[in-house]
Nucleic acid binder design. Structure first.
Lengths: 216, 216
DNA sequence: CAAAAATTCAGGAAAAATCCCCTTTTCAAA
DNA sequence: TTTGAAAAGGGGATTTTTCCTGAATTTTTG
């Protein structure tokens, strides 16, 4: 038994999932489910109502009223101390990137094994982030259906960096997510700045938008 | 404690849900989870492998390999004695109807309260069917719009700053152009960051684009 | 006119971004 | 097995951004 429990909140409109998830999480050593919410709005209210804040939130993406993207953005802004993991069925690259851009500390697919959830929660509390192999793989392999004819402008990691840099994350945060040293990230940045002839991150965003590398 | 337990099988490709659902169901008096399957094909194999048949199956609709519709049809034909409840996120009228037509004894939305699951299981075992109010309602109607509007106005200088900040200029350069002290520019920046809930200049660019303040 | 409000600007610092040059590791081709 | 190129990582410095608080000035308004 840990000396202090980690409080978990679950935000998912599927009560059946969140309810049963609670039972599962409560079997994890050192974790305790504080409350549920079925969408972002409800989460906002419950955060106000409770004197104790959750340490970590499991955040579904597809929800009515206020979805995961909005909620993620709001949490990042208003409760930077509360970590959250995106919870979704989709392993769509764009969705994953968007949640990471919005501050998620990790991305869990709903088809993971229940045991992995405990690992994920622990890693997030200890290291600050968690990424399953499958999600990492999706980020790496869902890039461009390899046209050998066309010139590949970006290497995979460059492209991922480019997309993440078009968010409000710091380079340090990007490094954590990509599991690379901040120095390596800085290398990507320099390379891209030189190659694309830009001066700062604003230039990067504008380039990415003009070239349909990101959407807003 | 009932004199004989009802055996439940769960067919869902989301291990996280089925795994935690098992814990939930096992807390219900008189119910016991026999096995899981992650799609229809796997269910067929497990039905053969197990000497004991489930009394009732929770059947997800969206699954790879062999989805809920196929599985429902197969079950109805080959195991008419096994009742099953459709389990889905969608409250799409056509989907519900199709599952009911394929022999489902009820249709559960994944957003029901966990307690309702126990009711549903009991009702199906005792009365032969179960339908939540929400599903019934969906069969009658279905709609849900959404909207969100927030108008933020900008003072003249703020707007000019905002637009210039969406370029690769440094704040010093912007100050020169606007003929103001860099400190004043920094004041605009802070004010906007706070008001627009953003963390850095990238956020500013994205905001400006989303709100048609700049074009690229 | 006087009080209030908005605007402009400063000091001082911490954090992040930017830049240059260099070493280690990896990994596949020769 | 060697070797060479690419990827990853590091040191260290400067510049820019970001943040917080408060003061001086101008404008608005009762």
């Amino acid at each position: 038994m840990n000396q202090h429990e980690h409080n978990v909140a679950i935000v998912d409109d599927h009560l059946l999932l969140s309810g049963s998830l609670e039972k599962l999480i409560n079997t994890f050593d050192g974790f305790n489910v504080l409350f549920h919410a079925s969408n972002g709005k409800e989460l906002q209210h419950k955060l106000k109502a409770h004197t104790v804040s959750p340490d970590i939130i499991l955040l579904d993406i597809n929800m009515p009223v206020m979805d995961g993207f909005e909620t993620a953005a709001w949490l990042t802004k208003n409760h930077p101390d509360i970590k959250f993991l995106a919870l979704s069925m989709e392993d769509d690259e764009k969705v994953i990137l968007k949640m990471l851009q919005n501050g998620a500390k990790g991305y869990l697919l709903k088809d993971i094994h229940p045991d992995k959830l405990e690992v994920a929660l622990l890693e997030v509390m200890e290291r600050g982030y968690y990424h399953s192999e499958k999600v990492a793989a999706t980020l790496l392999h869902s890039i461009q259906p390899s046209n050998k004819n066309e010139e590949v402008k970006f290497k995979e990691n460059e492209l991922i960096f480019l997309q993440l840099a078009c968010s409000e994350m710091t380079y340090k945060e990007i490094a954590d997510i990509m599991n690379l040293s901040p120095k390596t990230i800085d290398g990507y940045r320099q390379e891209l700045f030189n190659r694309l002839n830009i001066k700062n991150r604003v230039g990067l965003v504008i380039y990415a938008l003009k070239n349909n590398i990101i959407e807003i």
